[in-house]
Amino acid sequence: MRSTYELINTGDIAGFGDLLADDFVEHQGGPGFPDTKEGTLAFFRALLDAFPDLHMEVEDLIADGDKTVARVTTTGTHRGDFMGIPPTGSSAGMQLIDIMRFDGAGRVCEHWGVADMLTLLQQLGVVPASAPV
């Protein structure tokens, strides 16, 4: 699982793709991208176009059977179009929770995830930050 993040951090999407099973299923998915291996690779290419210095840091990693769960902090600078949002030049970060299931060959065959998109959109200035309570 750590290898997936390390390859994305270096921009090696082809290498990341080698870690995904051919019948990989994405259960979270980026908007407008198919829930397949190719759709996931296209999503990460687009994400790296938008945040070329994207960095994913594993904070916690828990494994049980064929599934692994990670709490991940992401950081990057918004330098390209992201979900229709023109580049802001803003530095941004958010938390992710990822669950990956591995097949018998050790490839990722399924992914579920939760991303703190509200915080990201607030940092990009698209959504106003909430007032203190």
Rank of each mutant, 00 (worst) to 15 (best):
E26S: 00
V127S: 00
F16C: 01
F33A: 07
V114H: 15
F33R: 07
V127C: 05
D103H: 02
A92L: 04
G125I: 02
Q95L: 14
K67F: 12
G15T: 00
Q123E: 08
D60R: 11
D18W: 02
I97E: 03
L7M: 14
L96M: 13
L61V: 10
T77Q: 07
L19T: 03
P87E: 04
E57N: 05
G15A: 01
E59L: 15
V108I: 13
P34L: 11
L7W: 00
G84Y: 11
V72I: 15
G65D: 10
E38Y: 09
A115P: 00
E57R: 13
L61I: 12
V72D: 05
S90I: 10
V127D: 09
V108C: 04
L7Q: 05
G84W: 10
E59D: 11
S90L: 07
V69Y: 03
P34V: 10
I99R: 01
E38L: 04
R2I: 14
M100R: 03
D64W: 01
M56A: 13
L41D: 01
D22A: 15
G80E: 03
I8P: 05
M1E: 04
A46P: 05
A115W: 10
P52T: 08
V108E: 09
V133M: 09
A70N: 00
F82P: 04
D12N: 13
A70G: 13
L19P: 03
D116I: 09
P31C: 00
M100V: 11
L41I: 14
T10R: 13
E38D: 15
S90H: 13
D64I: 02
M83H: 13
T10N: 06
S130V: 14
D23L: 06
G89T: 06
P52L: 06
D18K: 13
T119E: 05
D60G: 04
Q122C: 09
F44R: 01
D18C: 12
V69G: 02
A105R: 15
D81N: 12
R79F: 00
F43L: 09
P132H: 06
H111F: 00
M100D: 03
Q123V: 12
A70T: 14
P31Y: 02
